[in-house]
């Protein structure tokens, strides 16, 4: 499982070019920062209020005024900048974030995404997720293809939506897909799987790209 997540993170990292501003979700998406190709440095935006987010400090070196959006102590780059929530989300909605990588409970062929609430279960709240997927220039969903076999890529989301028609790309352990006006186009297929495998694991039609490529590991 950890290997599959690393595979997804490595592939997502290839979507960035040097100097991009990015916001990474918690969990698998955070791993993208450690998988960037050589020569590519991205500026991470932390939605609680700064750009230039870096990794965890050494134990004992924590600055109690510097946390990430998960509440963990983190560090920041010399080019970092701190601001209030009003400006943090202006940066997001205003289109100043090149891409966001985040997980999802469901995605559908219209690019709708559901990743904030399961009715009847304990409610966490959307936090910054709704603003982020609406505002980021490119929305990359990075997730395992199914939830223990249950479809997550659907014809129509069943859970309450986070946003409508915002997802650009879906990267899973099985392949790379783009959301287009015609539907979900399979661009890359991982060599461990056949076309039938990925179609069976997907809850909507997959349009196979005429120039389908193998999903690269490295």
């Amino acid at each position: 499982m950890a290997d599959l997540k690393m595979r997804i993170a490595k592939r997502a990292a290839k979507e960035f070019k040097d100097g991009d501003i990015a916001n990474l979700g918690i969990g698998l998406p955070t791993m993208v920062a450690n998988c960037l190709p050589e020569g590519v440095t991205i500026v991470l935006h932390s939605e609680n209020g700064f750009t230039g987010l870096l990794g965890a400090p050494e134990k004992g070196q924590e600055d109690v005024d510097v946390i990430n959006s998960g509440g963990a102590y983190v560090t920041y780059a010399p080019y970092g900048n701190f601001f209030g929530s009003e400006e943090s989300f202006s940066i997001i909605r205003g289109g100043h974030v090149d891409a966001t990588v985040l997980g999802a409970m469901e995605v559908d062929e219209k690019g709708n995404i559901a990743n904030w609430i399961i009715p009847g279960k304990m409610v966490a709240g959307m936090g910054g997720a709704m603003d982020l997927v609406v505002g980021a220039r490119k929305v990359i969903v990075a997730m395992l293809h199914t939830q223990k076999g249950a479809h997550k890529i659907l014809k129509k989301c069943t859970l309450p939506l986070t946003a409508v028609g915002v997802v650009d790309m879906i990267i899973t352990e099985m392949g790379v897909m783009e959301v287009t006006p015609e539907g979900i186009v399979l661009k890359e297929l991982h060599p461990d799987y056949t076309l039938d495998d990925i179609k069976a694991a997907t809850g909507c039609e997959l349009i196979v790209s005429p120039d389908l490529k193998p999903m690269e590991e490295e």
Binding site: E47, G84, S85, E86, S88, F89, S90, I92, R93, V123, G125, M126, G127, G128, A129, M130, D131, G135
Partner: peptide, 15 residues
């Protein structure tokens, strides 16, 4: 009672 507001909207509603 809990009213959930997207974080960016919360900041702008207050502003």
């Amino acid at each position: 009672k809990c009213t959930l507001v997207p974080q960016g909207s919360l900041a702008e509603k207050i502003r």
